[in-house]
Amino acid sequence: MAETDDKHISVQEKNPVDLGSTETISGSPTFYPPIDIWEDEKGLTIEAEVPGAEGNGVSVDLKDKILTIVGKVTPPEEPGKVIKEEFEVGDFYRQFTVSDLIDQEGITAKVKDGVLVIYLPKQAPAEPRKINVVSE
């Protein structure tokens, strides 16, 4: 197949999760999604590219300060004979350690256009407390 291509953005190969030879989650491969993480004064934002994962197939879990992202992708029904296969379809998985300073109750997550956005608000700073000293 002849191709005439103008290169603009470079290709980002999918990064498979190495589960070792003895462990498998399911029959399909699992990939680490590319992510951006940034912090502003109010909190942290994580953006992960999870193309093909729908709302109910995406889970964000927080346990013992470990944030786990899982995106289940249903492979398309066999649409016929393969002519060209440049990428594999599979699930997504990634883990982060989250600081104590995050307000865990306030975490929100949404998926749009194949991008998962997680917002982790910082805890409100502790109010300065004045302690009365009683003299006896």
Binding site: V11, G80, K81, K84
Partner: peptide, 19 residues
């Protein structure tokens, strides 16, 4: 397979009626 390494990566499938 004719991998071009150009964004976006593409998969092509063929049936009797469609590509």
């Amino acid at each position: 397979d004719g991998y071009a390494g150009v964004f976006p990566l593409i998969n092509i499938h063929e049936t009797d009626d469609n590509i």
